[in-house]
C-alpha cells in the first residue's frame, strides 16, 4: 500500500494513535450543575456530565434546547450563571479550547494559509508556525490551496480550512457546533471520516453538536441528549473503529435515540432542528 504525501505529513504532525496517547493528549471535562440564564429564560438548568480525556461525545437535542449555549460555555466564549466547569485534574492552565462553528467564519481578506495561522493564537510568531500551518493544511488535504482566497473555495473546502485552523494549535479539547450542518450529503460523509481520522491521530477530547443522529453514532463514543436544560439521555456507542456506515447495531442505536428525541412531540410535527 502506498501512502499519499498528505497522509505522511498528517502522521508526522499528530501523535501516536494509541488509547494511552489519546488520554495523555486529551483533557477530561467535568460539568456539575452547570446553568445559564438569559434574563428570564433559563436555557441550561443544571447539566451534569463527566467526559473522560480523549473521548468523543456527541450532543443532540431539539433546536433551541441550548446546545450552542453549552458549547460556548465549554469553549470559554461565555460564562455560566451557576454550577461548575472544570478541565483536567486541576491543571487547567494549558487547556486552550477550540471551537468550530457551523459556518466556516474564515477572514475573506486573508489567504487560506493566513486563515489557518489565526489558529496558532498566541504562538503566531513561533519559528515553526509556518511549518505547522502547512502540515495542518496537508492534513485536511488542502495543501495546494494555501495561497487561495476563501471566496474561491467550495463550502466543504472552507470547512476543511476551518478544521485546519482549529487543529493547528493542537488543542486538547475541540468543540464542534454542527460544523457539517450546511454541507451536502457526500461532502459530509467525507468530512466525517476526516474528523474521525484527525481525532484518532491527535487524541483531543471532542464534543460535537449535531442534528444528525446517524452522524452522532458514526463518530461518537457517547451520545448525550439535552432536553429542557438537562441531560435527558446518555447512550454509550460501543462500535469498533473505523466505523462502517449502516451496520445493524448502529441502526438499532439510531432508532433508540430517535425514539427518545421524538418522544412527547406532537405527532404531526416530528422533530425539526
Amino acid at each position: 500500500m502506498t501512502v499519499k504525501p498528505a497522509d505522511r505529513d498528517f502522521d508526522a504532525l499528530f501523535a501516536d494513535p494509541s488509547t494511552r496517547a489519546r488520554a495523555a493528549r486529551g483533557v477530561s471535562i467535568r460539568l456539575s450543575g452547570l446553568t445559564r440564564r438569559f434574563g428570564e429564560l433559563e436555557v441550561l438548568r443544571g447539566i451534569d456530565l463527566d467526559i473522560a480525556a480523549g473521548r468523543f461525545v456527541a450532543i443532540v437535542g431539539r433546536s433551541g434546547c441550548g446546545k450552542s449555549t453549552l458549547l460556548r460555555l465549554l469553549s470559554g466564549l461565555d460564562r455560566p450563571s451557576g454550577g461548575e466547569l472544570a478541565f483536567g485534574a486541576g491543571e487547567d492552565d494549558d487547556v486552550v479550547p477550540r471551537l468550530m462553528f457551523q459556518e466556516p467564519r474564515l477572514l475573506p481578506w486573508a489567504r487560506v494559509v493566513d486563515n489557518v495561522a489565526v489558529g496558532l493564537g498566541r504562538d503566531r510568531d513561533a519559528p515553526d508556525g509556518r511549518l505547522r500551518v502547512a502540515s495542518a493544511l496537508a492534513a485536511v488535504g488542502l495543501a495546494e490551496k494555501a495561497e487561495a482566497w476563501p471566496a474561491v473555495l467550495s463550502g466543504g473546502q472552507k470547512q476543511r480550512v476551518a478544521l485546519a485552523r482549529a487543529l493547528v494549535s493542537r488543542p486538547r479539547f475541540l468543540a464542534l457546533d454542527e460544523p457539517l450542518g450546511a454541507l451536502d450529503a457526500l461532502t459530509r460523509i467525507g468530512m466525517q471520516s476526516l474528523l474521525e481520522r484527525v481525532w484518532l491521530a491527535q487524541g483531543f477530547t471532542a464534543v460535537l453538536v449535531t442534528h444528525d443522529v446517524g452522524e452522532a453514532i458514526a463518530l461518537a463514543d457517547r451520545v448525550v441528549m439535552i432536553e429542557e436544560g438537562r441531560v435527558a439521555l446518555d447512550v454509550a456507542v460501543d462500535l469498533p473503529r473505523p466505523r462502517r456506515r449502516g451496520s445493524a447495531e448502529a441502526a438499532r442505536l439510531e432508532a433508540e435515540i430517535l425514539r427518545h428525541l421524538v418522544h412527547e412531540e406532537p405527532p404531526d410535527v416530528g422533530w425539526v432542528i
Binding site: 469553549s75 477550540r98 471551537l99 459556518e103 467564519r105 489565526v118 493564537g121 498566541r122
Partner: peptide
C-alpha cells in the same frame, strides 16, 4: 462587520 468573525477572532485569543 460580521459579528461571527469578531467572535471567531476572540475565541482564537486575538
Amino acid at each position: 462587520v460580521d459579528a461571527g468573525l469578531v467572535e471567531m477572532g476572540r475565541s482564537y485569543g486575538m
